[in-house]
Nucleic acid binder design. Structure first.
Lengths: 155, 155
DNA sequence: CCTTGACTTCAAGTTCACTTGAACTTGTAG
DNA sequence: CTACAAGTTCAAGTGAACTTGAAGTCAAGG
């Protein structure tokens, strides 16, 4: 028994909807074999890949970015601890950055929100590195003064 | 000089695009007066409201959720330190939760990714409270075993 | 043989958070 | 008076990440 999983088995075990699994496959994030019937059969390592995808989404990464990371895993053999471990260094750093930003936000919240400087200081608290700066729709980030019409009064 | 700001002044000072400001106003997140010409005139406190919106977005909140929070601010007077401070308690807690989740993720990454248990343990690391559980599109979260087809082998 | 359930593909729909474009009005400078 | 920038509304488009629906296939059970 090679222990191949149907799409719904994977869906139940991963918490990722079957439709999402097809979507991920279409996007090249995961792969499957086919049974004679044409039905998908997933190998078990897909579960770890999915764990990684869910994980990375919680960190705010887009599927495209996640795809880039997953591409670093080998195609020629089932990924081993070492393969995943190669990814984990940069990831720890990434998480640390995000935590640091949240700490800054928290500090800013406590320190500034009641003193009137929030609207002037938030720019220094928010790290725009990740998703900002992309063109098209999506939230922008706070920038400093740029405008002539700056009063001396508190905002 | 009452120091009312035009939409582009607000846009420059907040880093939020003018189109987004109109959108926020439409959604009831901010308000403006009108000049005789029909042009929007924003009062200065809108800048702090916008700071709060940008801030909350960085925490992963939707505009709808942010609207609920902003509704807690008084309409009858310019929000003061105390008004903002009333919000800050729950917010600190919220940030702490998020930080705690990231710490768990990081720990899980370091501890589990190389030992083969990741796909079984992530469920305990990821806090689904925030955005998961919503119906419709969007990412799902990892759930535990639910399925008969569980092998004893490592995934 | 017929139904049921699990699966397939493909096209179209949904939500969020905006942006873009068209057509129009106003205020200021030359 | 004419330009032109800056503003307006409204409708439609965008991109990400999926979901939903329609129509069809396939294997197993009664």
């Amino acid at each position: 028994m090679e222990s191949l999983l149907t799409i719904n088995q994977v869906a139940r075990r991963s918490g990722v909807a079957a439709s999402a699994l097809r979507y991920y496959e279409e996007k090249g994030l995961i792969t499957s074999e086919r049974a004679g019937s044409g039905h998908r059969r997933f190998r078990r390592p897909v579960l770890r890949r999915l764990a990684f995808i869910v994980f990375a989404q919680r960190l705010g990464m887009s599927l495209t970015e996640i795809g880039v990371e997953l591409a670093k895993l080998p195609d020629d053999h089932v990924p081993k601890g070492q393969d995943w471990a190669r990814l984990s260094g940069p990831w720890s750093a990434r998480i640390d950055e995000r935590i640091a930003e949240l700490e800054r936000l928290k500090l800013g919240l406590a320190k500034c929100i009641s003193c009137g400087c929030l609207s002037l200081e938030l720019c220094k608290l928010v790290n725009p590195a990740d998703r900002a700066g992309t063109s098209g729709p999506g939230p922008r980030f706070w920038v400093g003064e740029e405008d002539g019409a700056v009063g001396k009064g508190n905002d």
